[in-house]
């Protein structure tokens, strides 16, 4: 019955929260893993190649002058570079010679708030790391410890919301009890969805990403039917090809830049449940789900932040 399902959902949420409080961020780390760090004196363009070559979208920065970590390089930095070039097209050669040290100046030049650098100690609870991410709207959190000998900070790893939700999906059987349909639990439903069409200039879409701190913009046709999505990650491939200089490019043309192994955009309906969404996260690299109606018309989007926030505080 609906009542029983609602009761089971509460029990499952409580169990998952207990699990998150009982585990440390360190527990999520594989036994053996790699961590790629970029020296801040690298050129931005070179760092882009390194990210793409290693199939990663972010990396901690190491400032060898201060011998300290200097935050995370993320797709937002590349979006800032494109915005900077758009505002100052005569500064083309500066963009070509821009180093990672210079990214903070680019933020100031286009008056963008720097992303709050949060962190968590590897042996603190996973629950605490999740709460910090939700509060700061960050999608990833560096795990920082201190070198015993030199008191210098160490970035032990960087946890992403995806990795945490996958860890929960793999280890919490209670996720199968989350059977209430999305329409009843109000996840991601009241959203003012900003959208674009295939003809929208890609620079306008990039402005939407930056000004609304979102990591994707849905693309709809004349009947508001969802036909594609432009993601923050796509900006990296735009810069890689030097295409950012041609900002009259439509978003439809820019999407032809995507590599052939792009897995596609996930959709769901309001009748779906978190149990099957968590099962999908367990098996695939899912970053968000667009909610559509029976005719494929766009309704809303569920992000990993929405799911994490519901698991921590929902119901």
């Amino acid at each position: 019955t609906t009542e029983q399902i609602a009761k089971d959902q509460k029990i499952a949420l409580r169990a998952i929260r207990l699990f998150l409080k009982s585990k440390t961020s360190y527990d999520v780390l594989p036994v053996s893993y790699r961590l790629i760090v970029l020296d801040t004196s690298l050129l931005v363009k070179k760092s882009l190649n390194i990210l793409l070559q290693n199939s990663i979208v972010s990396a901690p920065l190491w400032n060898n002058k201060t011998s300290r970590f200097a935050g995370l390089l993320t797709s937002s930095d590349f979006i800032n570079v494109i915005q900077y070039y758009f505002q100052f097209p005569d500064k083309f050669d500066l963009v070509e010679k821009l180093t990672l040290d210079g990214l903070r100046d680019v933020e100031k030049a286009i008056s963008v708030e720097p992303i709050e650098t949060i962190s968590s100690h590897p042996f603190k609870s996973l629950y605490e790391a999740c709460v910090k991410m939700i509060d700061s709207k960050a999608r990833r959190i560096p795990l920082i410890d201190e070198d015993e000998k030199t008191n210098r900070e160490i970035v032990v790893s960087v946890l992403t919301q995806y990795r945490i939700l996958k860890f929960v999906a793999l280890n919490c059987r209670e996720t199968r009890m989350l059977l209430r349909p999305l329409k009843d639990i109000n996840i991601g439903t009241e959203k003012q969805m900003l959208r674009a069409t295939m003809e929208t200039p890609v620079i306008d879409v990039i402005h939407v990403l930056s000004q609304n701190s979102v990591s994707s913009v849905p693309i709809v046709d004349e009947n508001d039917k969802l036909i594609n999505v432009y993601e923050a990650y796509d900006v990296l491939t735009l810069i890689k090809g030097g295409l950012y200089t041609d900002l009259s490019l439509s978003v439809g043309e820019a999407l032809m830049r995507r590599s052939e192994d792009f897995e596609g955009v996930y959709t769901c309906t309001l009748n779906d449940r978190l149990s099957t969404i968590m099962e999908t996260i367990r098996k695939s690299r899912l970053h968000r789900l667009f909610i559509v109606d029976e005719n494929g018309k766009l309704i809303s989007v569920i992000t990993l932040s929405d799911i994490l926030k519901y698991i921590l505080f929902g119901d």
Partner: peptide, 19 residues
């Protein structure tokens, strides 16, 4: 479950659409 991958978002299909 009605979770699915949007066919028109697959690179090959998007390319055909643009061409």
């Amino acid at each position: 479950s009605t979770i699915a991958i949007l066919p028109s978002s697959l690179p090959q299909i998007h390319r055909a659409y643009m061409m």
